Simulated assay, not measured.
Amino acid sequence: MSPFFKSSTGLPENIAATLCYLFAFIGGIVFLALEKRSRFVLFHALQSVLAFGAVMIAHVLSGFIPLIGPLIAGLLSILTVVMWVVLLFSSLQGKWLKLPWIGDLAEKQLRHL
């Protein structure tokens, strides 16, 4: 028996939260639409949408910077992969890992759901 509660999707909370990150932006949107009960899953879905949405915008903007734009994009890619792996494993373990700024924003939005 899993020590995690089941979300309204029927999945254990840690698995649902991990799927929010595994499929990055899209997974977060799907679980925002499907989840009705679990604050844990909703927090990770919001954080996924906000974090990976910001990364996508930063990648687009780096394309407009002459000369150092590709360097910025490369560093951003490395940082994104590290962040993705850390978020995957922390959510799988059932942790409420809150990213700076984005985690606070997700937490504030969670209060309004």
Rank of each mutant, 00 (worst) to 15 (best):
F23E: 02
F25G: 04
F25T: 10
I26Q: 09
G27D: 14
G27M: 10
G28I: 10
V30H: 05
L32K: 00
L32I: 05
L34A: 15
E35S: 13
K36T: 13
R37S: 14
R37V: 13
S38L: 02
S38H: 01
R39E: 12
R39M: 11
R39V: 06
F40Q: 00
F40E: 00
F40P: 00
V41Y: 00
V41S: 00
F43V: 09
F43L: 14
H44C: 12
H44A: 11
A45T: 01
A45I: 01
A45V: 01
L46R: 10
L46I: 06
L46W: 06
Q47P: 03
Q47R: 03
S48N: 14
S48L: 15
V49D: 01
V49G: 01
V49F: 02
V49W: 00
L50G: 06
L50K: 03
G53L: 02
A54M: 09
A54Q: 03
V55T: 13
V55N: 09
M56P: 05
A58K: 04
H59S: 12
H59L: 12
V60L: 14
V60R: 09
V60T: 10
L61R: 03
L61D: 04
L61Y: 04
S62Y: 01
G63K: 06
F64V: 07
F64M: 06
I65H: 04
P66V: 08
P66D: 08
P66L: 07
L67N: 11
L67A: 12
L67E: 07
I68M: 11
G69S: 07
G69E: 02
